[in-house]
Write a protein that binds this DNA or RNA. Structure first.
Lengths: 198, 198
DNA sequence: CGTTAGTTTGAGAGGACTCAAAGTCTGTGG
DNA sequence: CCACAGACTTTGAGTCCTCTCAAACTAACG
């Protein structure tokens, strides 16, 4: 079950048997049903969650409405950035959108890896960097003003998610309303139809 | 001149004399006038820029308009994330908004530090993490829908910048127009005035 | 002091929002 | 295997916020 994750890590930087063994010791595999909350508002995010199978959605409440801040699919990591790194209670929720298998590692054990194996910081640096890049990409998405541009950007950069995520969550992820998203999709499918005919 | 930067690094993790010496060897200090471009669209971003004095603005062109993606003031770092890490030409510009003193280190020399001193990855990891957190914070800012909320968030999280940056850049940074920003400021100053009187 | 950059103000247009209702899909129990 | 309930999506009508275009005003710099 952990093979893809360990391969991913080993590909960044070959890891010693000791690190591998500690990783396997620290990583806990949990199976969770659909619509299960891995993290709630007000809780401190003590774990890094790696999706082995399934799909996660991170969101928070704004004026009582759920606003989606991220989707996480297979072999990717989810955590509340502000809560996890600052060690304070956060405002975010993490929910499964499908029945999922998650590998989680506790913050303290991750620190242990960083302290016990200085070379593990190389791996941590690269992974952090990878998520930093994604974060900047989402920033670019949100600065694309029009609702249509956002949707097209989403289609291009998150292929596959459209099939797995209810539109209402995609709408709040893009910062538009469900109705607007529906109208855009309608408009786009019409113009795509036109193209085919001509 | 480099003292604050080296102190900042040393506070993350004490550095050996060798690292310090190499850092001083690799870091190049440049003085640039106001409105100088440190990076242009189409160029590969080969340097990490650390602002020792002055102020930077990063932006890109969207439909011919400048869109501001970041401000960088003293003791902070600026780089085009996608270009620098992916080693490809980028779409961003970095411009000085004030006469500035910049310490820059070349990508290859930074890699050298990471390779020669494995413990330097600890420092790199923490710094990357710091900017990752900031990136997520900006994401939250952009998801605050209304123009007024964005402006208030900006005031709270970027105090001091208002005095140093033309409003037109703050407007594109917030994803609103200059006119809308002006009207919001007008409205807020009026309601602040009211409060004082009552 | 004139010129240019920066900011404010006005009027009108339009995209996205809200509220509301009608379809459509999906999964579970009969 | 069908039927119904609940979740999901589409469509409609009216409103509002923000945008665009334009012009006036103000501050800063040489």
């Amino acid at each position: 079950m952990l093979t893809p994750l360990l391969t991913y890590i080993n590909d960044i930087h070959p890891i010693s048997d000791e690190i591998r063994s500690d990783l396997e010791k620290y990583l806990e595999i949990i199976e969770v049903p659909k619509h299960h909350l891995l993290l709630k508002e007000g809780q401190r995010n003590d774990y890094v969650f790696v999706v082995l199978k399934g799909l996660l959605r991170m969101y928070y409440l704004k004026d009582g409405e759920e606003v989606c801040s991220r989707f996480t699919d297979e072999n990717h990591i989810s955590l509340s950035v502000n809560s996890f790194y600052s060690r304070i209670p956060g405002y975010e929720y993490i929910e499964t959108l499908e029945p999922s298998v998650i590998a989680r590692i506790h913050h303290d054990n991750l620190q242990r890896l960083y302290n016990d194996y200085i070379e593990y910081n190389y791996i941590g640096r690269i992974i952090t960097q990878e998520y930093f890049i994604k974060s900047e990409e989402r920033l670019y998405l949100l600065r694309k003003q029009s609702a249509e541009e956002r949707y097209l950007f989403f289609l291009e950069h998150y292929p596959g998610l459209l099939q797995r995520v209810p539109l209402k969550h995609i709408a709040t992820f893009l910062g538009i309303t469900l109705e607007t998203l529906s109208r855009i999709r309608n408009k786009l499918s019409k113009s795509a139809g036109k193209k085919k005919k001509s």
